[in-house]
Structure formats: structure tokens, C-alpha cells
Design a binder for these strands. Structure first.
Lengths: 223, 223
DNA sequence: CGATTACTTGAAATTAATCAATCCACGTGG
DNA sequence: CCACGTGGATTGATTAATTTCAAGTAATCG
């Protein structure tokens, strides 16, 4: 394993970034890297994942099959995101499925090794707690938003977030519109109509999967 | 402070329950107890809370004022629940408000002391991480549900959860129906109509704030 | 190039919010 | 002890938003 490359992965993750250099190297030594081609299933519901997973490059779709048999998209991991649950629940089976949306690189750390690391470094543990705590309040907020705002607001928020995550006002949608629809709990038809409306309102421009945000403030007001 | 009483609080919280006795005593020594009368505001949005808060007895309403000026109920803390965020975000202002719904007892631990505790006890930190990780997946699921299912499904889930939390198929609603409405992101009128429908369908019986679940399976099917 | 899948558009049907009027329960003060 | 007032709950009628159904068009992949 290429230690230099592993260190890049360590530096990518906010969780590890504030660690002293020596400790980063310790972490890097534990990392095993994997590449997954577009479309590959990384783990499935029912698997017990024994690794702490960090997405180095690419995009990973986390989804679940709902009671009605439809696929429910839960989230899309971006580079730097990690899957903490897989590292913290010993032996428990996952109830979600992870699929590589595009060619992706993953850094993984063995569960036991990661837990040992946490025991050694209280700084790391506290940092991880802070990140997870933040995730909790974000999810809390998103949950509220999901039941409060209308579909236009949800799509507006999605576009703003995606733009922010990709760091550009012009971007390609990482998901097919029908997937955005299930992600936002609506239908492709509604998404299509809202895109049309936002375009005629000159808030966005869009052709195919390319979107350009023209009026960020207007979009923010819709949330 | 009554150490014995503090120990009861420690034993109440799943987070601390698996600690060795000696360490429980250490935790108990850090606890300061407070009583809040029904209706008291424990902290408000804008406050910076410097304590790790554990609800020993009573119920605490966590709410937020939405952009439209309406109060949005985020959750109701039950005995044994804790507010981790208040302990992990140094100095940051809270954006939610906590109100005692009924007379409540709270055990609090100073933020610094709690963080020191985490640094000392990796066991505690890992345990806390596991709990928060579980909360994250639950919230993830709730968020999905919020945008997927119809209002009947949301109320069905709420009733099932409340019944489970209170450990009885016959129970008194801990919230006013109008609060249940904002919690579920709907209106009192809709809640009223669904209660009526569930009653005529003989899935529940209800009078005033008392609810009896007659057909749990039917209720589950609605989710 | 053909077939499958995604996207768009329109019309009808459904769900829930809003508006408006009572009804009911409870606590207060007379 | 009772009348009154207030806030909560219910009910009906109306309106708005979104889903569903149906059809057709565009894009993609082998």
C-alpha cells in the first residue's frame, strides 16, 4: 500500500485533518484502498461491514428498498464523507445498500483497528463526536424541512446544496432526475415541471443534466 | 448534592449504564441537578449552553421558530434522553429552545468536565459514538418517512412510537393535538380528521387525549 | 440502428391546507 | 357554585398543490 496516497486520503477527511502529523501517519498505515467501477455494489443490505469507510473520490449512493418495493435513495456520499455506522456497530447487519454512482476510490480502516484508534486518541473521538453531533442537527433540520416546505422548496435546497458541494454555480446533476425525485419524495413529473418553472422564472438555466444557478437569492427564498 | 440521587440519574441513562461502578461514581460526582416547573424555558435559541444535559424525569420540548414565525416542534425528550450537542459544541449558540412540558428534573454536567471525562474514558466515548450513530440512522429513516408517506402514515407511526415509549396500548397523548400537528408538519384539522377516520375504521379508540390501539397491525400497515 | 430507459407534457383525480364556524373543556372570578 | 372567557378540538366547504394516468418525445446503450 502506498503510504503517501493513504495520507492524501487522511488529509481529505475533516475528521482527521486536525490531528498531529505523527498521528495522521498512524492512521494512514491502517488504510486499505479500493477502487470501485461505476455501478458496482459496495455493500448490500444484509451484509455486515467490518470497515470504517471513507470516500476519497467519486460518489456513492446510499439507498434502501422500501416496504412497497421501491428503491428509496437516502443520500449521496461526496468525497471526504465517511460511513461511521459501519465502524461502530460491531457485526450488525446494514439495512442499506451502497452503490458507486461513478468510478470511486474508497479508503477503509478495519473496524477493530479503528476502534483501537479511538481508544488511543481521545482527540479523535471527541472530534468524531462533534461531527456526528453536527450531522444530527442537520438531519433534524432536514427532517423538519421535508415535512414543512413544498416540493419547490425541497428542490431549491437540493440545487443549492449540490452547487455548494461541487463548488460551482454551473454543474452537472450527479443524479438522474427520476432519482432526484425519489430522493426528495416526489415524482419525476413534478420535478420536470418545477425545473421548467424555475427556468421560465429565470432563476436557473438548465439543459439536460447541466444546471446553472442564475439567481441564488431567489432560490434561497424558495426554501 | 446528593450523590445517591446523582447515581440514580447516571443509571438511568443508557449511555452510562455499561460503565464500571467506580466510573459511574466518578460521573455522579460531576452531576448537578435542577428542577424545572412546567412551562419553564430551560434554554432559548441564542443561548450558549455549557452543560451536558440529561433528562431524569419529566418531558422537555425542543422547538424552533420557523422562518414564517410559527413554532416548529422538533422533538420531545423523554427520561433518559440527553442533549449531546450542548456538551460537544464549545460556545456555539443553540438555535433551538427547550421548554419543560411538565415538571422536570435535569442532571447536568459541565461541558469541560464532560469532555475531560470523554478523554479519560474511551469506553464512554465509543459508547456515545455508537448511540449517536444509531440516532443518525434513525433520523435518516424518519426524514425519508417524512417525505415519503402520507399524513395518515405519519400519525400511525407517531401513535405506535408513543405507545411503545410509554409501554402500553392505552395511553394519554403527551402532546396537545395541535402540537402533534406541528410536529408532524400538518394542521390540527387534518389530525382531527385522521383520528376520526382511524376510529371509524376501528383501528383505535380515542376520547380526549386518551388513545387505545385496537389493531396494531393495521396501524403498522398504514406507515 | 433498434430497444430500452429517461424525460416531458397534459388532463383527471386525490390529498391536504386554508378559511370559517361551532363546539367543548377548563380555569377564573364573581 | 356557576357564568364567562379562552384556547383547543371538531366539522364543513373551498381552494391549492401534487400525484396519477396516459401519451408522446428525447436520450442512451448495446
Amino acid at each position: 500500500m502506498d503510504l503517501q496516497h493513504a495520507l492524501e486520503c487522511v488529509n481529505l477527511v475533516p475528521l482527521f485533518r486536525s490531528l498531529p502529523q505523527a498521528q495522521k501517519v498512524e492512521v494512514a498505515k491502517l488504510i486499505v484502498q479500493h477502487k470501485y467501477a461505476k455501478g458496482t455494489i459496495i455493500y448490500m443490505a444484509g451484509d455486515s461491514v467490518g470497515h470504517f469507510l471513507i470516500l476519497e473520490a467519486g460518489q456513492i449512493k446510499i439507498s434502501q428498498v422500501a416496504a412497497n418495493g421501491k428503491e428509496q435513495l437516502l443520500k449521496v456520499m461526496q468525497p471526504g464523507d465517511f460511513d461511521g455506522e459501519s465502524a461502530l456497530f460491531n457485526g450488525n447487519q446494514r439495512n442499506v445498500t451502497a452503490t458507486a454512482l461513478v468510478d470511486s476510490n474508497i479508503c477503509q480502516i478495519d473496524q477493530g483497528a479503528f476502534q483501537d484508534l479511538l481508544k488511543t486518541s481521545s482527540q479523535l473521538a471527541v472530534k468524531l463526536l462533534a461531527i456526528m453531533s453536527k450531522q444530527i442537527s442537520e438531519l433534524q433540520e432536514e427532517k423538519t424541512l421535508a415535512s414543512t416546505t413544498d416540493t419547490t422548496g425541497k428542490l431549491a435546497k437540493y440545487l443549492l446544496e449540490t452547487s455548494a458541494a461541487l463548488g460551482d454555480k454551473i454543474f452537472k446533476l450527479p443524479l438522474k432526475k427520476k432519482d432526484i425525485a425519489t430522493y426528495l419524495g416526489t415524482t419525476p413529473e413534478t420535478i420536470s415541471r418545477i425545473f421548467k418553472q424555475l427556468t421560465t422564472d429565470e432563476i436557473i438555466e438548465s439543459s439536460g443534466s447541466t444546471v446553472k444557478i442564475l439567481d441564488e437569492d431567489a432560490l434561497t427564498d424558495l426554501v
